[in-house]
Structures are given as C-alpha cells and as structure tokens.
C-alpha cells in the first residue's frame, strides 16, 4: 500500500461524491465550501451523499473523549430559546398586518433617505408591483432626522420571467419584508426562502414566501446574526407548506445576494 507516491499519475476524478466527502471531513474552505453548501441546498443527490459521509464518519467521534460543559451552557440555550418564542409565533400565524404596516413605514423612511443619497434602484424596486396588484402608495417625503440603521436589500430575479422577490431587512428589527412580485400561487407548490450566510454557516430556512403580497417575516436570532453584506438567498420550489421534514430541499428557482443600501 505504498504506491501513493508523490506525483499522481492516475489523477483522481473529483466527482460530486468526492466533494461531498471532502466537505464532510471539513477540508473545504472559502469559495469551495460555499459552492458545496449551495449545491446541497439544490441537489438532493449531493445532499444525500454528504449525509452519507457524515453518517459513516460519525463513529469516529467516539474516540473523542467526552467532556462536561459548564452549567451556564444549558441556561444560555434555554434563554435563547425563550427569547425566540414570540418571533417564532409571529412567523407561524401569517404575520399580523399591523406589523407589516409599521415595517413598511420604516422602510419608506430609509428609502427616502437612501434615494436621496444613492438612488438605489434595488430599494425602489420594492414598491414596483406587478399590474393588478394593489400598489403600495408612493413613499412620502419624510425628513429623516435620526440616522436609520442601514437596511440590507436583496433582489432575487426568478429566471427570465420578470418575476422577482424583493427582500429587505432592517438591522435590529428581527423582521424582514418580503415582496413576491408577480409570483402567483399554482396550488401545488410553495416557495421557500433560504439564507446562505456569508460566513459559510448552515443554510437556514426563512420560511415560505407568500405570492403576490408584501409580508413581514419574523427572523430567528440565529438567522439575523448571519445576515450581512454578501449573505445570499436562494428560493426553492417545495410542496405546499414548505420543505417536508426529512425531505431534501426542492429545486432552486432563484438566487440573490444582500447588499447594504
């Protein structure tokens, strides 16, 4: 078994199962790691293979000596979970409209400021609705005295259809405004939005998108912590109700990245 010499003559094919193995071992970093994550969100075979390797490697952890964490770890877990309870509840009951209105008002306010500063097209696009939808009133000029937190905006074009998602996140709000413009419900599928953190963390579901409406979505703290410049979004097509437990995510129909306005 000493034939694995310095210069490989028969080069190994780096196929998907190989990349999944490298990922499972933790060898990947940077762009390659991001690419693998993105692929796993969209390619069930690849995600399956990653889990296959994870599962085979798992017994090796038995050789890692166990250790007792500090008692404050559980307290921290309990506190973080308690803190997220209201947010999760809001996400579940289709978000109260008052919430949306309040957020839209905030968005309008910064949008006016941002418009003055940079005429950011992505931000303005939030208010351009498909024909037939009740348009949101044009932003009223409001003198912004206090500096607003800079919002993050992502536009997620859906193929060549002219349909798109406009996603706005105002830092510290733990709420995200999602406008699914031109997207219509087909009665068979829902679309689920996923956060791909810039730091290479695990993909996080941001929930199911409601077609043709502006909705506020509550964000779990774990997701807001990952939001930032360069964080990207993917939209997948799922059965009604979103990705079923245990199933792989459906096909990606759109991608976009956050930028700070």
């Amino acid at each position: 078994m000493s034939t694995t010499g310095a210069t490989p003559k028969n080069e190994i094919t780096r196929d998907d199962p190989m990349i999944a193995a490298e990922w499972a071992l933790g060898l990947l970093e940077g762009e390659e790691l991001l690419a693998a994550r993105g692929k796993a969100a969209t390619d069930p075979d690849f995600a399956w293979r990653k889990q296959w390797w994870d599962n085979w490697f798992a017994p090796l952890t038995d050789a890692m000596p166990g250790a007792e964490p500090g008692a404050q770890v559980w307290d921290g877990i309990a506190a973080r979970i308690a803190a997220q309870q209201p947010a999760i509840g809001a996400a579940d009951d289709a978000s109260p409209p008052t919430n949306v209105i309040a957020l839209e008002a905030r968005v309008r306010r910064w949008q006016w400021v941002a418009g003055l500063a940079s005429a950011a097209a992505a931000a303005l696009a939030l208010f351009a609705f498909a024909p037939g939808r009740s348009p949101v009133e044009a932003p009223a000029p409001i003198a912004a005295a206090a500096p607003m937190p800079k919002p993050l905006v992502a536009t997620v074009p859906i193929g060549e259809t002219g349909l798109r998602l406009d996603v706005t996140y105002i830092p510290e709000s733990e709420q995200m405004l999602v406008a699914a413009i031109g997207l219509t419900a087909d009665g068979v599928h829902d679309h689920e939005l996923w956060l791909v953190p810039a730091d290479g963390g695990a993909l996080q579901s941001l929930g199911v998108v409601v077609p043709g409406e502006v909705r506020s979505m509550a964000l779990p703290a774990a997701a807001t912590a990952k939001l930032g410049d360069g964080a990207s979004l993917v939209l997948t097509r799922e059965p009604i109700g979103g990705k079923p437990a245990g199933a792989n995510a459906g096909p990606v129909v759109a991608k976009g990245a956050f930028t700070r306005v």
Binding site: N55, A58, G76, S205
Partner: peptide
C-alpha cells in the same frame, strides 16, 4: 449552544431513516 438552539429551531431536519440520532447529532 448553537447546536442545541439550532436543533430546536429545525428539529425536522433529522431523518430517522438515514442515521441514528447520536450519529446525526455527532456529525
């Protein structure tokens, strides 16, 4: 902490047909 908070947020990610709970949690 992240592991357990994450687990709580997305408990549905665990597929009992693919891995034992401890193997999955270890990974």
């Amino acid at each position: 902490q992240d592991v357990y908070v994450n687990l709580w947020q997305r408990a549905d990610r665990y597929d009992p047909t693919r891995a034992s709970p401890i193997a999955w949690l270890a990974a």
